[in-house]
Simulated scan of single mutants.
Amino acid sequence: MTDNSLPATKMSARDVHVYYGATHAIKGVSIDVDQENVTAFIGPSGCGKSTFLRTLNRMNDTIPIARVEGDITLDGENIYSPAMDVVQLRARVGMVFQKPNPFPKSIYENVAYGPRIHGLAPVKSDMDRVVEQSLRRAGLWEEVKDRLHDSGTALSGGQQQRLCIARAIAVDPEVILMDEPCSALDPIATAKIEELIHELRGRYAIVIVTHNMQQAARVSQRTAFFHLGHLVEYGVTSDIFTNPRQERTKDYITGRYG
């Protein structure tokens, strides 16, 4: 009898190493990310979780001394293949950063930017629909629909982060990477982003880096614990937090270090 309970893998990493010059930052990480679950990366500061996240859409390419070894695939296709179009890859694997970074353009133009450069909405009515749909999915439409031509930088921090999420999803990505998306936000804005992650789950494969263990427990179904560049443990979130298999995971969860 075939077990159909395991969700299909969207992205897969095998024996991934990352070097910054002589520094060995990521050491032999293997992990699968699926479409159905939110995956959280946790671990102490400097443990490699953000560095590894950046390998998933080749953001480390922007650092001259960075070198990535191993295999990372998206739907079975090697994302580090010379044939891979990196611009296209970053449309398929979107990124939301720690600090909200809207463009110094209008709210409308922030969301329209990606679809415009990728030629996804050639007619204005199409673009209007994409902008509205993206802002709705990001939980922002009702707050900004009467001020679409105001600057995106005039929004509050939490609204700016949701605008950045709307910008990421406007190009219809398959994966969304979030690098500590709430660390610069107050508790109310954080709650809105967490609610949004729940709503987006299943539509996109979502990976979130967080230093907040309670947040990982709230928003994710799978959790990966990183320590000193190694992936120590990866599994169902409730198991990681209540019954970790590795002593190092247990020590981190219980606050013995980190």
Rank of each mutant, 00 (worst) to 15 (best):
D71M: 13
Q98I: 05
C164Q: 01
V131D: 01
V123N: 12
H118G: 09
M178P: 00
L74H: 04
R137A: 15
L185V: 08
V130C: 01
R129I: 07
H149V: 11
S134E: 01
S151R: 14
P82K: 13
C164N: 09
G76R: 12
T153W: 07
I165Y: 02
P122I: 12
P122K: 14
R90G: 13
G119F: 12
R129P: 01
G152N: 05
S125E: 15
T73I: 11
L89I: 10
K99Y: 15
L89A: 08
A66S: 15
R92P: 03
T73A: 10
G157H: 10
D85H: 08
R116N: 15
L148A: 13
M84R: 14
L185N: 06
M127S: 09
R137G: 14
E142T: 11
G70R: 09
P102F: 00
A112T: 06
E109I: 02
M84H: 00
L74S: 05
L120M: 15
P181H: 10
E132H: 05
Q161W: 06
V144L: 03
I107E: 01
M84Y: 01
A138H: 03
D146P: 05
L155P: 02
G157S: 11
V144Q: 01
M84E: 05
G139M: 04
V144Y: 00
Q98P: 00
D172F: 13
P102N: 02
V171C: 15
A91L: 09
S156N: 09
Q160Y: 06
D179H: 07
G76E: 12
D126E: 15
P187G: 10
P122G: 12
S151E: 14
L185H: 08
M95H: 06
Q88D: 15
G94C: 04
V87M: 12
V144T: 02
D128C: 07
F103D: 00
A184L: 09
G70K: 08
P187Q: 10
Y113Q: 11
N110Q: 08
V96S: 00
P104F: 09
P82D: 10
P104R: 04
P82T: 06
A121W: 08
I107L: 04
V130T: 11
E132L: 04
D75Y: 04
S183Q: 08
R167H: 09
D75S: 14
C182E: 01
E142Y: 06
T73E: 13
F97P: 00
D85I: 06
Y113A: 13
R147F: 09
M178K: 02
P122V: 12
C164P: 02
R162Q: 09
L135A: 04
I176H: 04
L120E: 10
R137I: 02
Y113L: 13
Y108S: 08
M95V: 06
V68N: 03
P173L: 10
I107Q: 01
M95A: 07
D85F: 05
L120G: 06
